[in-house]
Design a protein around this nucleic acid. Structure first.
Lengths: 104, 104
DNA sequence: AAACTATATCACTATACAGTTATATGCAAA
DNA sequence: TTTGCATATAACTGTATAGTGATATAGTTT
């Protein structure tokens, strides 16, 4: 694996390292949504949502489709599900570990 | 999924979002190594290696074992392999896409 | 065209953190 | 105990970026 590939992996992990972006992705896992709908779903402000979507778009984690005056975003990468699932499993396993340690 | 869990997922992704830390993990995938060996394997300076290992340790991605004067680190989370594999696949798929787009 | 709406972008501030150097801690050999 | 080595930690600097408010861009309606 080349240095450039490691850098790229780090960059992609970095894009997933923000709670606001994860919330946007989570909302999009259920259905594709417009910016306004994403504002509502996440509680983030408009400029912030657009900025984060731009980041996600640049990494091709999401796709953008113009619908008249609206911009509809959808998940573009099936690997996202697996990546997030894995991390969630990891968190659950960790919680379980900690729990066992406490009650032992 | 709670807000706290989303935050935790973001934090863990963040820990993987640094090229130096990924290089350390990659080196540890082959075998457990001491700090000095990791310096050699990655080209990073001592203080930097220790700091990154501390971060990885705090997330339990690695484990630490004292061996006399040395500290031996090893991978502690089997999910790391899958996470990194997935991201690498994603990068490869992306490269393939771009390649196809160019030669089309 | 003018007014309105949805989205994108800009400028700014505050915060987090990677890398570096220097120093501290702790184990080990003499 | 003194010396030396391996590792950890502290202090500092520079850089990146999240959030915000204001503004710009584009499409839509009247």
């Amino acid at each position: 694996m080349s240095d450039a590939q490691v850098d790229e992996a780090a960059r992609l992990f970095g894009i997933l390292s923000d709670a606001s972006r994860l919330k946007l992705l989570r909302a999009l896992m259920a259905q594709s949504l417009t910016v306004s709908e994403l504002m509502e779903a996440t509680g983030l402000k408009q400029g912030n949502v657009s900025k984060h979507l731009g980041v996600l778009l640049s990494a091709r984690f999401v796709a953008r489709e113009q619908e008249g005056n609206f911009a509809r975003y959808s998940l573009a990468d099936p690997k996202l599900y697996e990546l997030c699932d894995l991390m969630c499993l990891r968190i659950a396993a960790d919680a379980h570990q900690r729990n066992k340690a406490l009650t032992r």
